[in-house]
Amino acid sequence: MTRHIETHHFITRINQDFLQCAVYDTDHAQGRIIGVEYILSDRIFEALPPEEQKLWHSHGYEIKSGLWVNPQVPGVIERPELENLAKTYGKFWCTWQVDRGDKLPLGAPSLMMSPQAVNLGQVSPELVHRRDNKYNISTEALRASRVEIAEPEWLNPQADYWKQHGKGFAIDIKSTDMKLRAPFP
């Protein structure tokens, strides 16, 4: 949790309750695809099995704190989106660890979590300042302007699993037998 990254989500909506995002490391044409995030409304999330819910994170704090921004979108258009998103959950697999300097995508995907209002969940201030400068915005001001966005009344305790349990998750890739139809390779 000491490794924080800036992410740019390019989003398509399947329906009112479900979004899918291609995640890049920047918004330039040279941006690298570093993962995929899925976003679910609280309504659909609550129906998932508990073992699945452990893999998801909440978005309320990210939005309320001003960490989440929709670059270039005027506040009046951004606001209804944010109000909807504050109640959603996300599942983000990161496939390219650019923060550790990987020139090519190496290893297994990492499960990513969202910033939270507890010490362990705080984003490094330098990262926020760099972002703010780039887009000429102020996270502090955004945070103040979002005070009225309703806090979700209920956050499922299986989400943001680390907050309750102090445990994170890693993926291992193991060698195993393959069920075959013909010889491989």
Binding site: G168, D172, I173, S175
Partner: peptide, 10 residues
């Protein structure tokens, strides 16, 4: 050989 992913709690 085959490859499979596993979740590990850390």
């Amino acid at each position: 050989k085959g490859l499979k992913t596993e979740l590990r709690e850390i």
